[in-house]
């Protein structure tokens, strides 16, 4: 350590930035408990002195339970679908040789680099032709096609020792049993990361939800809150209450599974 000053400055700056990053969330949570006159007061009330639950009561006059169910249901189905499809595909792409393997993997990777939003217009017209707009399957199934999961699982499956698979085969293990009993347990850490990743992305995929949903009961929680934001009469406190419950589940999941989540992000990138 040559100088002691620069670490002090950089530590201080990082703490300051961290506080600035936390502030919006503090503002959401405290705002959710403020009555309208307090929420728009200048100078602002830094902490709600007379907290109220009225905002939550008003918020739940909208179908918030249904929106919450929709968000959970859609994100969970996407999570299960992606994990299943990606682990099967990732395993054979990493551990099997068959004609077309390299081409197929290249196709997946190339598609991953393309911007997802660009396909949303044609995807929408296609789903509209199917009559799938404003349905659960219309919201869920397209997300399973996104190739990131396959890429992640392939990278991870490569670390499985081939001897293990060979040995199981010599013992006369069938392909499905081999996958289920040997490969799947070994893929578990990557699968955990992929599951959380997919769930959070599914919950937060605002653009898809916006264009593929029509009716109020089919809306997701973030989308429902966004429509409240569009109405100018909605009091701030109600919006903040909505903002709080639209994000709290994701923040909780992230905090609980941070380790596995962080591993997933690093696995997909650093080891390339």
């Amino acid at each position: 350590m040559k100088t002691n000053r620069s670490p002090v400055i950089s530590n201080g700056l990082v703490i300051l930035f961290a506080l600035l990053f936390i502030f919006p969330f503090y503002w959401i949570v405290t705002g959710a408990f403020k009555i309208q006159t307090v929420a728009v007061a200048i100078p602002p009330e830094w902490f709600p002195l007379e907290p109220t639950l009225q905002n939550f009561a008003d918020l739940f006059k909208n179908p918030v339970w249904r929106w919450t169910f929709n968000s959970f249901f859609i994100a969970s189905c996407e999570m299960i679908g992606v994990c299943l499809a990606a682990s099967l595909a990732g395993y054979v792409l990493a551990k099997k040789s068959f004609p077309g393997r390299v081409i197929i993997f290249t196709l997946f990777v190339a598609a991953m680099a393309l911007p997802k939003q660009v396909i949303l217009v044609p995807l929408f017209t296609m789903l509209a032709d199917f009559g799938w707009v404003d349905t659960y399957h219309g919201l869920i199934l397209p997300a399973i096609g996104w190739p990131f999961g396959v890429f992640l699982m392939k990278q991870f499956a490569q670390t499985i020792p081939s001897e293990l698979i060979e040995a199981a085969k010599i013992d006369g293990c069938s392909e499905l049993r081999l996958f289920y009993n040997i490969v799947l347990p070994l893929l578990k850490p990557a699968m955990g990361a992929l599951a959380i990743f997919t769930f959070i992305n599914g919950w937060n995929d605002y653009f898809s939800q916006l264009i593929l949903t029509r009716s109020t009961p089919m809306m997701t929680l973030p989308l429902g809150v966004a429509t409240l934001q569009g109405e100018y009469t909605t009091p701030y406190g109600v919006l903040m209450a909505g903002a709080a419950i639209a994000s709290v589940p994701m923040i909780a999941i992230f905090v609980l599974f941070q380790k596995s989540f962080t591993q997933g992000i690093t696995m997909g990138a650093v080891k390339g």
Binding site: F21, P24, F25, W27, N204, P222, Q229, A246
Partner: peptide, 12 residues
């Protein structure tokens, strides 16, 4: 902010 819903972020 990355893990929270973008809707919450924009509301605040």
């Amino acid at each position: 902010p990355a893990v929270s819903s973008v809707v919450s972020i924009t509301v605040v």
